[in-house]
Amino acid sequence: MEYMTTLSSGSGFWHPLLWLTAFVVVVVLAVIIRSFGARKYKMDTEQTKPFLSGNDESDPNEIHVRAGNLYWGYLETLKGYYEKMISLHTGNPADYLLWLFGVLALVVLIGLLA
């Protein structure tokens, strides 16, 4: 069974089929546990409303969390890094060329000195 051997990384191995078997077992367990839950709800009562507190559903455009609001804390913490990085990405074609020439010169130096 040559094709049942695993991917070896030198210090460990990875067997996707074993992993998949374990994954399927977990999913089956989850489904079994889920099946213990209540199956039905009563139509035309307050059970169909989204909020128990009785509030109405607002405009979907207002309750959707937009991408710009995600990771606000992360971006705020690393503000210094991002300001620097974004200011380096000037979008100016001449700067693109400068970076290319710079790296070229640097690697030539490294190559000749090494």
Binding site: I86, H89, T90, G91, N92, P93, A94
Partner: peptide
């Protein structure tokens, strides 16, 4: 002007 051709940046 190449300084103005930078609408794609960041």
């Amino acid at each position: 002007n190449s300084d103005s051709i930078n609408r794609l940046k960041g």
